[in-house]
Design a binder for these strands. Structure first.
Length: 395
DNA sequence: TCTGGGGTCCTAGGACCC
DNA sequence: TCTGGGGTCCTAGGACCC
């Protein structure tokens, strides 16, 4: 069996790089995309100039300004990010159909079938994306997704110039364990702050420490997970590049500018969130069987509640009805609420009839509108009759 | 410093059924 | 008379990732 050649590609400071294309006066300046420091925002993306001040993703904006008083704040422009993301992903799909998009700015590709040295494959992709989109991208390469991903993280982190790294980091076959061994445990896949702390408290510092540990001892600490962890530490990962991604849940949440305990306000918010979720579901021709809410109080304690409906829905009113019921039954009165969220999961395709229609996005949108208009005219039940018909047929 | 928003996966307990 | 065991669904929470 020949070795797999897997690449992990990650656009450098993606949102900021797009903003620089839209407004070249930002180039080289310390700026961020994210919420304003007056509100409760956090940094979503930081330019490399801003990172030189210690500004990082997910940092509260207030703290970022203290680190860098001249920091420029740019509002998010999601449509622009989607457009550029699509451009990059399309280029990758021209190189190979084996593309797994992980997020807007990140993908794995399997280039095992390309008969060129891995170094030149990486360089070709990087310069082509630069030529066609002007976006900087970094690439990690290895015999598995895990190695490619970690290689990319390490490659990027070595560059501290205040400019986009555009790094390429290739781990040759057979060198996986040696590459991982000296790295900090938190570079591991699936090891976050909590697990890292547990590992550190038992004397594990590097990935090599985990690779070398007595399997039985590791098992007493981490149970079933120990085996997976140790395999990963040894550089073993057989996971494939998955090209088919289907969403399993859709949710929207919002943090208020000010905490509130006013039931009318919370109710209206829940209604708005339910409509948003429903609209997104309909746009993707999806519906779900489970409605959930998320509530965070001002002291940051958070709870979730969910309810299985026994049938599919993608209608705002119905999602809201169940969400509000869950809220009513579980909200502690008099405790100010900071965040409210609504979600729908256990998704399926609801309308078999849709397949009879032209698949063009415009047609779909027209159909959605038609369904929504019917709902307005005849009441929400009209949307469900088709749904129940389908269920009766299939059962 | 005072902590966003969108997700996925895993675990564990209880209900219910055979 | 003092209590089996497996399967499946549902729910809640938590860890993790970008």
């Amino acid at each position: 069996m020949t070795e797999r050649k897997i690449l992990h590609l990650d656009l450098d400071a993606f949102f900021c790089s797009v903003e620089e294309l839209l407004d070249p006066s930002l180039v080289g300046k310390p700026f961020v995309v994210g919420g304003s420091p007056q509100g409760r925002g956090v940094i979503v993306s930081a330019s490399y100039a801003a990172r030189m001040y210690g500004v990082r993703t997910a940092m509260p904006s207030g703290r970022a300004v203290r680190l860098c008083p001249d920091l420029i704040f740019v509002r998010r422009d999601h449509p622009a990010y989607s457009t550029y993301s699509r451009k990059v992903m399309n280029i990758l799909k021209e190189i190979t159909p084996l593309v797994q998009q992980v997020s807007v700015d990140e993908a794995f590709i399997d280039v095992s079938d390309i008969q060129l040295p891995i170094q030149s494959i990486c360089q070709d992709i990087q310069s082509r994306i630069d030529r066609e989109t002007k976006l900087p991208i970094s690439i990690g390469a290895g015999t598995s997704k895990m190695i490619a991903k970690i290689a990319n993280n390490i490659g990027k982190s070595r560059v501290r110039t205040g400019k986009a790294p555009r790094s390429i980091n290739i781990i040759p076959p057979g060198k996986e364990a040696a590459f991982l061994a000296p790295l900090d445990i938190q570079e591991m896949w699936g090891v976050g702050p909590k697990t890292a702390e547990r590992l550190r408290s038992r004397g594990f510092k590097t990935i090599g420490d985990i690779a070398d540990a007595d399997p039985e001892l590791l098992k007493t600490y981490f149970g079933k997970y120990a085996e997976v962890m140790q395999k990963r530490a040894l550089g073993i990962d057989h996971s494939e590049v998955h090209t088919d991604h289907e969403a399993k849940s859709v949710s929207n949440e919002t943090t208020f500018r000010q905490d509130s305990e006013e039931i009318l306000f919370l109710k209206n918010t829940l209604m708005r969130l339910s409509d948003k979720v429903a609209y997104r579901l309909r746009k993707d021709n999806q519906a779900g069987k489970v409605v959930s809410i998320k509530v965070r109080y001002s002291d940051f304690t958070t709870f979730t509640r969910q309810k299985a409906l026994g049938r599919l829905t993608n209608v705002g009113d119905e999602i809201f009805e169940h969400a509000f019921d869950l809220l009513n039954k579980n909200l502690s009165p008099g405790r100010p609420v900071r965040l409210l969220g609504v979600g729908v999961s256990n998704l399926e395709e609801p309308y078999a009839q849709l397949e009879l229609f032209d698949e063009s996005p415009l047609k779909k949108q027209e159909l959605t509108q038609a369904i929504d208009e019917l709902k307005d005219k005849f009441g929400k039940d009209v949307v469900f009759r088709a749904n129940k018909l389908k269920q009766n047929k299939t059962n």
